[in-house]
C-alpha cells in the first residue's frame, strides 16, 4: 500500500520533495511515480512542477496522467506545489494555454517594471524567501503568521473565487500563494525548500484528514 504518491511527469527533480516528506513521515511508504494506477491507489497525492507550464501539461498528457490527476484532486488529500498549483487553473499566460481547469482562475506573469517602496527594481523571477499571510486551514497549524517560504516563479495565480484563497504574499502587490478546496491544497512556494516552516506544512499535509 502506497501512502504518498509523488506524480512524476519528467519535469525536474523530485528527490527533494520525496526527502522532505520522508523526514516528516519516516514510516510512510512514499513513491515517485508516473504510473496512473499507482497514483489511483495511493492514499495521498503530491503534484509538483518545475519549469514551463506548457511543457508540464504536454508531459502530463504524454504519460496519460491527466485523468489520474483529476481523479486524485477530487477524491483524496492532494497537494500541488509551484507549477502543480498553476496547472490546476483554467488558463495560463505562459504559452497562452488551457490548464486542467479544476479551479476557477488564470495564471498571469509578473510585470517587468515592478519597483519596491524604495524604488528599487524588483526582479523576475520572484526568487527567495517571502512572507506568507495565511488563513485558518489545518495545513497552517503551528506555522507563524508572516512565516517565510522559498519562492521561485515568474507567474502567479489570479482568481475571483475568493473562497479558494488560503494565503497571500506580496511582490509588491498581494498575490495568491496558497489555495484550498475540500481535499485539495496547493501552494506557489516550495515547502520542501522552506526549512522548518516548509517541513511543518508537509507534516500537516501528511496528517490531514479532510473529510
Amino acid at each position: 500500500m502506497v501512502d504518498i504518491a509523488i506524480i512524476d511527469y519528467g519535469m525536474g527533480n523530485l528527490r527533494s520533495v520525496q526527502q522532505a516528506l520522508h523526514t516528516v513521515a519516516p514510516a510512510a511508504s512514499i513513491v515517485v511515480t508516473d504510473d496512473p494506477q499507482e497514483v489511483a491507489q495511493a492514499t495521498r497525492v503530491v503534484f509538483p512542477g518545475q519549469g514551463a507550464m506548457p511543457d508540464c501539461i504536454r508531459e502530463l498528457e504524454a504519460r496519460g496522467l491527466r485523468a489520474a490527476v483529476l481523479h486524485a484532486a477530487q477524491s483524496k488529500p492532494f497537494l500541488g506545489i509551484c507549477i502543480g498549483l498553476q496547472m490546476l487553473f483554467e488558463h495560463s499566460a505562459e504559452g497562452d494555454i488551457p490548464g486542467l481547469a479544476i479551479l476557477q482562475g488564470k495564471v498571469m506573469r509578473f510585470a517587468s517594471n515592478l519597483c519596491d517602496a524604495q524604488n528599487n527594481k524588483l526582479k523576475v523571477p520572484h526568487m527567495g524567501w517571502n512572507q506568507v499571510q495565511h488563513g485558518n486551514h489545518p495545513l497552517w497549524e503551528g506555522i507563524d503568521q508572516n512565516a517565510r517560504f522559498y519562492f521561485v516563479h515568474s507567474y502567479y495565480v489570479c482568481t475571483e473565487d475568493t473562497q479558494l484563497v488560503q494565503a497571500t504574499s506580496c511582490y509588491p502587490q498581494p498575490f495568491v500563494c496558497a489555495v484550498a478546496r475540500d481535499n485539495l491544497f496547493a501552494v506557489q512556494f516550495h515547502p520542501e525548500k522552506s526549512q522548518d516552516a516548509g517541513l511543518m506544512l508537509l507534516k500537516n499535509f501528511v496528517n490531514w484528514v479532510p473529510f
Binding site: L122, H126, G128, W129, N130, R148, F151, C170, Y171, P172
Partner: peptide, 8 residues
C-alpha cells in the same frame, strides 16, 4: 516583502 539572501 521578499528578503535579500545570504549565500555561503
Amino acid at each position: 516583502m521578499l528578503a535579500k539572501r545570504i549565500i555561503p
